[in-house]
């Protein structure tokens, strides 16, 4: 058996990964351009008003209940989108074993999502 064969077991979990991938794709396309523009480019280049992103203002803004949803859309869903594409990229390049890649990628996305949401929750608690 040198040829890879499709598994005889049904992949019940795949719709979940594709759903997270699609949701993350929408966030990546609609929400991320502005986020990257403001926090990856404009803020570092000093093009934002200096009092707009002070630690005090950002703390009040970030450690709030609505921001829990914002982090979900800006970090968690795009992470799952990226994980899915990385997994399928490795499959396209025939690198590694998909069974392992899959759990590694989605596991990492889940772990990082949990960390991001926990940070906001911890900041809220404080």
């Amino acid at each position: 058996m040198s040829q890879p064969r499709p598994s005889s077991r049904q992949a019940f979990d795949e719709p979940l990964w594709w759903l997270l991938f699609s949701a993350g794709g929408v966030c990546f396309a609609v929400l991320l351009p502005a986020t990257i523009l403001f926090f990856g480019v404009l803020a570092p280049l000093g093009l934002l008003p200096s009092n707009a992103i002070t630690a005090e203002r950002m703390t009040a803004l970030v450690f709030s209940l609505p921001d829990l949803a914002a982090i979900g859309a800006l970090i968690c869903l795009p992470l799952f989108h990226a994980a899915h594409r990385c997994r399928h990229g490795l499959l396209d390049l025939r690198l590694g074993n998909d069974g392992i890649n899959k759990w590694f990628m989605y596991g990492l996305a889940a772990l990082l999502s949990f960390a991001a949401l926990s940070l906001v929750a911890l900041g809220l608690w404080r």
């Binding site: 986020t35 990257i36 926090f39 982090i71 795009p78 990226a82 940070l119 906001v120 900041g123």
Partner: peptide
């Protein structure tokens, strides 16, 4: 970028 953003979150905390 997402890792940068998470770094910012951690820094803010």
């Amino acid at each position: 970028f997402l890792l940068c953003l998470m770094g910012g979150l951690w820094a803010l905390y």
